[in-house]
């Protein structure tokens, strides 16, 4: 594979921004309001955070030739745990734990996400259940667990402490962007400064060969799915904090698909092997840039999904070697 598999999605992202620079007045403008940077560009990065976090974990999972369909549901569980522990509404399932400070509740919520990921990892790594089936289990049952936790209610969190994580800013930038940056650096360091990334790629490329050179496929998958669950846990508390409420039914709904799309658009093959974290991030930002453009320009809802699909098709075609081959032949013929 050539270097920079994400170059086409980056180019398309550039095109989307260029389009806005010309046709949407004020889109690229960034001003400072109440000590925070304010503008559509900031929104794009801010709103892309949950999908981008999922995409980080998903990139590793896909690199092992797997997939994690449960991350959206894990977000719902994580949000429910965080909001529930802070508010302790009367029907909350974990009422035995008492009211917790925001920081403790959120940490436990992230932990809950990691435990869900661990569950996936055990099913896939040790019981050798196919990833689609294993994670489908938690995708369906997980949302049920979240609804059970909240008793089907939307748990609204009063006050500003809980919202600070998603709405607050640090050095002018919304906190989610910093969290994403930190997680991206952590994942980058983990996969490129240690042998972990190499193991992941080897195991995805050729599991048998990886096994014979001594890579432990079981614990590797355990680790990868746990990391994916951890990312979903963090995305879950950001989503809940953003609306000051845990919405078990809608939090993270279909977001696993956005994450898979982001990874694919970022140039990582679904068949496993080489992966690109940078590509996954660019993919997530590209998808959100399209969404924000559509919303800002007030384009009708009916065409929103079609525009997104066109963007994905364009990137996929550009990435396809046989598409280039066909083009080349046409030109020479």
């Amino acid at each position: 594979m050539k270097a920079y598999p994400w170059r086409y999605s980056l180019a398309l992202l550039g095109l989307v921004l260029l389009f806005n620079a010309i046709f949407t007045p004020g889109f690229l403008a960034i001003e400072i309001r109440d000590g925070r940077l304010f503008g559509s560009l900031i929104d794009i990065f801010n709103r892309a955070t949950p999908a981008a976090l999922l995409a980080l974990g998903m990139a590793l999972v896909i690199a092992t030739a797997g997939v994690d369909l449960s991350v959206g549901a894990i977000m719902a569980i994580s949000g429910a745990v965080a909001a529930g522990l802070v508010v302790q509404p009367p029907d909350f399932l974990l009422h035995g734990m008492g009211v917790q400070p925001v920081a403790v509740a959120m940490s436990l919520a992230v932990l809950a996400g990691a435990v869900c990921g661990l569950f996936n990892g055990v099913l896939i790594g040790f019981f050798r259940i196919q990833p689609v089936v294993a994670t489908l289990l938690l995708m369906i049952a997980g949302r049920g667990v979240a609804q059970l936790l909240t008793n089907g209610q939307i748990i609204t969190v009063p006050g500003d402490d809980f919202a600070a994580l998603a709405i607050g800013t640090t050095l002018g930038l919304p906190n989610p962007i910093w969290i994403l940056a930190a997680m991206a650096l952590f994942f980058g360091a983990l996969t490129r400064l240690t042998a972990f990334g190499l193991f992941v790629e080897a195991s995805g490329d050729n599991p048998t060969a990886a096994h014979y050179v001594g890579i432990n496929g079981k614990s590797l998958r355990l680790a990868v799915y746990t990391l994916s669950g951890l990312c979903a846990g963090v995305a879950g508390i950001i989503a809940a904090s953003n609306i000051k409420a845990a919405d078990a039914n809608n939090a993270g709904l279909y977001l696993e698909l956005d994450a898979i799309l982001a990874v694919a658009v970022g140039g990582t093959a679904m068949t496993g092997g080489k992966f690109s974290l940078v590509g996954a991030l660019i993919g997530a930002v590209l998808m959100q840039a399209v969404t924000t453009t559509i919303l800002t320009r007030g384009i009708g809802t009916e065409v929103t999904l079609i525009i997104k699909a066109l963007v994905v098709v364009a990137v996929c075609l550009l990435q396809s070697p046989s598409f280039h081959e066909t083009l080349r032949r046409r030109r020479t013929a």
């Binding site: 559509s40 939307i154 919303l295 007030g298």
Partner: peptide
């Protein structure tokens, strides 16, 4: 002057309004 779906949810309502406030209209 502007109509967009928020899918009856808080998160979407917020995202749509956020984009609207920055749009020319």
């Amino acid at each position: 002057v502007f109509t967009q779906t928020g899918d009856f949810t808080r998160a979407k309502g917020k995202e749509v309004m956020e984009a609207l406030l920055k749009s020319p209209q």
